[in-house]
Design a protein around this nucleic acid. Structure first.
Length: 558
RNA sequence: GCGCCUGUAGCUCAGUUGGAUAGAGCAACGGACUUCUAAUCCGUGGGCCGAGAGUUCGAAUCCCUCCAGGCGCACCA
């Protein structure tokens, strides 16, 4: 774990501020948050601090004057600062010495695939729960975005120093599952020669027919005259586990794996849900109106109380979900992240009420909403409905578009923003498809390194390289972008925004492609060639590291 | 009707947690392959940041009121 450049500057600022107080230049003050960020305009230096402007109203002085006092109190024991400027309304701009950037670039060589790891998490144990589609049918494109977002957030948080457990919650105890069993039974009867009218609630996809046929071939027509409830229950179980297996395979081929699969049925064992509700009732969070049990979610800001036991005596999905989240926290997670489809957003206040009643902070449960995907083909919307069986499956997307392009496309927008996913565009190997832009940069680097080897030129190690030969603006820019990579990870992880990774990659690849077109890496100058080979090799490491978090391959050739 | 999300270039979207002159890709137009990969690059045009008021040194970003779109508003999940 390396110290981020940004933190070095932040530390220098912090010490300077302390010194101003100790030396009596400024009165004691409260600094809520010490902000040090790269300015939008690189002419303003490598990092800028806005502390003077924040303090202006508190110490009642002109921000530029405060900035001057802070600057006078800055000490730079590591000797990393080239110059400091006070600019604009009171920014303190820091320019870092080239050799400091160079030394940090060389650290990438040592860290290799570990480069980018930061200690945001400090070993905290966090669960990420995602996908969690009930096994009533194969995953479709709508599930795919949530799957990728969850998977990449998990990878990202791991990189940021959290211990992550990925979990799939199997909703296998409700009405939907019963409908699944019924649907199979209808198909089973149909295959046995009966004429069947399918009710609205039934699933119509071909996969139902396949399951029914399997049962018919394996076990014969004995269920035509068996007890219907028992048969449905049996068919539900057979179909549920068959579909779940298929879901697992699809996810695996999509690069998504889980540490745990948690069955909703577990919650009902030993009357677990009932006992929890009893406990909550004793604590006054649950009341009865004679026929139903209500959870007092309004006590925690929900707009109305919610039913946990229905009039017919069945617990609601919410009741199970309280028990599920209790179970999660009982397993020792410091925090829990749920990734939901945005159409479930109305459920959030209720869930937060649930965990607060259980005695946890609201913040311990983070909910990420993933907006639904508008699926298009050549600009034309593709209609989808699970029940009718008209939908584009994850499998079809994988076969048609490929894992890399599919995953990358789902990460190019903020999760809470709508996403148009056009199958024709996503499979195009063209400049409309950013995944190739980034992969191409990686392949190009590999190609250059291969070419150098063919000519008997080895990529030098850091100790043998003179990076001060790299004076092109793109070279300096690349060095800084690479060194700052851990800062991007830190920001993306703390805000849970995986799309920042794709934006970073696009920008990095862009600078590289531009550089490539202007300059030859391999030239007659052996020292310059060495320095440039070293630079692109460090870039290759960073590209690989980011792509690895995204679960996208880094091809050597394209 | 109430709640949540979203309104930024012709289109699709970023915008570093309130910072300096608002960016990128696509599309359009004009250029660059005898070269380490043209799946690339260079250049040009393009903006009332939905509207209005407010908070402060400073607002695309925060508060309030509207407008438009999406999604919710179950004893479904």
């Amino acid at each position: 774990m390396r110290a981020m450049m940004k933190n070095k500057i932040a530390k220098i600022m912090e010490n300077a501020l302390k010194a101003t107080v100790q030396n009596g230049y400024l009165a004691d003050f409260q600094l809520p948050y010490l902000e040090v960020e790269p300015p939008a305009n690189p002419q303003h230096g490598d990092y800028a601090a806005n502390a003077a402007m924040i303090l202006a109203s508190q110490v009642k002085q002109n921000p530029r004057k405060i900035a001057q006092i802070i600057q006078d109190n800055i000490s730079d024991p590591e000797n990393i600062i080239e110059k400091i400027q006070i600019a604009g309304p009171g920014f303190i701009n820091f320019f870092i010495k080239d050799n400091v950037w160079h030394e940090m670039l060389k650290e990438i060589e040592k860290d290799k695939d570990q480069f980018g790891r930061v200690d945001l998490g400090q070993g905290k144990i966090v669960q990420v729960e995602f996908v969690s589609a009930n096994p009533t049918g194969p995953l479709h494109i709508g599930h795919a975005r949530g799957a990728v977002v969850g998977d990449v957030i998990a990878n990202l948080l791991t990189t940021a120093g959290f211990q992550i457990s990925k979990e799939y919650y199997i909703n296998d105890a409700g009405n939907q599952m019963n409908n699944l069993g019924k649907s199979v039974l209808f198909r089973y009867r149909e295959l046995s020669g009966e004429k069947i009218e399918f009710p609205e609630t039934c699933y119509r996809g071909d996969y139902i027919k396949d399951i029914a046929r399997d049962i018919l071939e394996r076990e014969g027509d004995q269920y035509l005259h068996a007890d219907e409830q028992k048969t449905i229950s049996y068919f539900t179980q057979v179909a549920g586990s068959a579909i779940m297996e298929e879901i697992k395979v699809d996810l695996k081929d999509f690069g998504v794996t889980f540490d745990e699969y948690f069955s909703e049925k577990e919650l009902y064992k030993d009357n677990g849900v009932g006992r929890l509700l009893d406990e909550l009732q004793k604590q006054g969070f649950i009341y009865s109106d004679g026929e139903t049990l209500w959870f007092k979610t309004t006590a925690f800001g929900d707009e109305k109380d919610r039913v946990v036991i229905r009039q017919n005596g069945d617990p609601t999905y919410f009741a199970a979900d309280i028990a599920y989240h209790q179970n999660k926290f009982a397993r020792g997670f410091d925090a829990v992240i749920d990734i939901w489809g945005a159409d479930h957003h109305g459920y959030m206040p209720r869930m937060w009420a649930g965990i607060q009643a259980l005695g946890h902070e609201k913040d311990a449960l983070k909910i990420i909403l993933v907006q639904l995907v508008n699926l298009l083909r050549g600009g034309v919307p593709v209609a989808m409905s699970t029940r009718s069986g008209e939908f584009v499956t994850l499998r079809e997307v994988l076969d048609e578009v490929g894992k890399d392009a599919a995953r990358y496309n789902f990460l190019m927008r903020r999760s809470d923003s709508h996403l148009d996913f056009d199958l024709e565009v996503a499979k195009k190997q063209s400049n409309e498809n950013p995944v190739y832009y980034v992969q191409y940069a990686h392949a190009r680097i590999c190609s250059i390194i291969r070419m150098a080897q063919d000519r008997g030129i080895a990529v030098p190690v850091g100790a043998d390289v003179n990076l001060s030969l790299l004076q092109e603006p793109e070279e300096k820019n690349l060095i800084k972008m690479l060194v700052r990579y851990p800062e991007m990870i830190y920001g993306a992880a703390s805000s849970l925004e995986p799309h920042r990774l794709t934006f970073y990659l696009n920008e990095l690849a862009g600078v590289f492609h531009s550089y490539y077109n202007k300059n030859k890496v391999i030239s007659d100058d052996p020292r310059l060639t060495g320095a440039r080979l070293f630079l692109i090799k460090m870039m290759k490491i960073v590209l690989q590291n980011v792509l690895s978090i995204l679960g996208v391959s880094a091809p050597e050739k394209m």
